[in-house]
Simulated assay, not measured.
Amino acid sequence: MSEPVVLVATMVAKPGQEELVEKTFKEALPAVHAEPGCLLYALHRKAGTTGEFVMIEKWASQDALSAHMKGAAMREIGVALAQALAGPPDALFLDAIPVGAPESGAI
């Protein structure tokens, strides 16, 4: 069995595009949550900012993440935000170091 994949993606909206970025991700969330292998897909905003967004993701496997990246929801997000982001998302992959209870010791 493969290990879950945890990804933190940070995106910065161009000035004036903050509402579009937030709206696009909010609208995509239900479809992404329904994708096979999606364990967590949670939108956040960097505290104290209006245009810095952080998506915390957990996928059952690398295959599930790869399918997500090629899926309809990501294509729609890409089209909607093609001109709205200041640059490409910054993706940070994490390796868990589980400590304590499984439900509180790792994402």
Rank of each mutant, 00 (worst) to 15 (best):
G78C: 07
T24Q: 03
A80H: 07
A42S: 15
I97W: 08
G100C: 12
P4C: 04
G51I: 01
E3F: 09
K23L: 06
S66V: 02
E18F: 12
K14R: 15
K26G: 14
Q17Y: 06
V99W: 06
A96D: 08
V12P: 01
A28W: 05
T49N: 14
P88F: 01
L43T: 05
M55A: 14
P102H: 06
V54E: 09
K46T: 15
L29T: 14
L92M: 10
I107M: 12
T49S: 15
D90Q: 11
M1F: 04
L85G: 00
A28L: 10
M11C: 12
M69S: 13
V8C: 14
M1V: 11
A64V: 00
W59K: 01
L94T: 05
E103F: 12
A82M: 07
L92E: 11
A31P: 01
P36H: 12
R75F: 04
E3C: 08
A80T: 09
I77A: 03
E52C: 15
C38E: 00
F53K: 05
V79Y: 07
F93N: 03
A28Y: 07
D90K: 13
I56Y: 12
M74K: 06
G100V: 09
S61L: 01
L43S: 09
L94A: 08
K46A: 15
K14E: 12
V99K: 14
A60Y: 01
K14F: 04
A72P: 04
A84N: 03
F93V: 05
E35Q: 10
